[in-house]
Amino acid sequence: MSKVEDIQEAIRRNGYRRSGKPRVTINDVADHLGMSKSTVSRALNGYNDIAELTRLRVAKAAAQLGYKPLAQAQAIRTGLIQSLGMVLNVGGHGSHRPFLANFIDGISRRASEENWTLTVATAENSEAVLETIERLSGERKVDGFILPRTREHDPRVDYLRSHDIPFIMFGRTGDDKDCGWFDIRGELAMEQAVERLYGLGHRRIGFINGLDYYMYARLRLQGYLAGLEKVGLPVDRALMRSNAVTKEDGLREGVALLSQPIRPTAIICAVDLAALGLYQAAKAANLDIGRDLSVMAYDGISEGEFASPPLTSFSVDNREAGRRLADLLIKRIRGAAPETLRQLGEAKLIERASDGPPVSP
Rank of each mutant, 00 (worst) to 15 (best):
A256W: 06
V142G: 03
L80I: 05
E113S: 10
A111S: 14
L349F: 12
V129M: 06
E139C: 07
G20W: 09
A226H: 12
E124C: 05
T246V: 06
D272C: 05
S294Q: 04
L329R: 07
L287E: 02
A101P: 01
P357L: 03
V29E: 08
L287D: 09
A75L: 10
L136N: 11
R185W: 05
D143R: 03
Y216N: 08
T173I: 03
E124S: 14
N286I: 00
A43I: 08
L84R: 01
G300P: 03
G290V: 10
I76S: 10
K177C: 11
R203K: 13
A297T: 07
A244T: 07
V316S: 08
A282K: 03
A244M: 03
E229Y: 02
L70N: 15
H93K: 11
K60Y: 02
G20H: 10
S112P: 00
G322R: 02
A326H: 04
L53W: 01
D317Q: 00
W116S: 05
S19H: 06
H93L: 13
D143C: 01
P166E: 04
A51W: 02
F182A: 09
Q72T: 15
A73R: 14
L325W: 08
L136I: 11
D158Q: 11
R161L: 07
G232N: 11
A297L: 06
D49W: 04
E5P: 01
R241D: 02
D272V: 00
F99Q: 01
A75Q: 15
P155F: 09
E191M: 13
H163Q: 14
I81G: 15
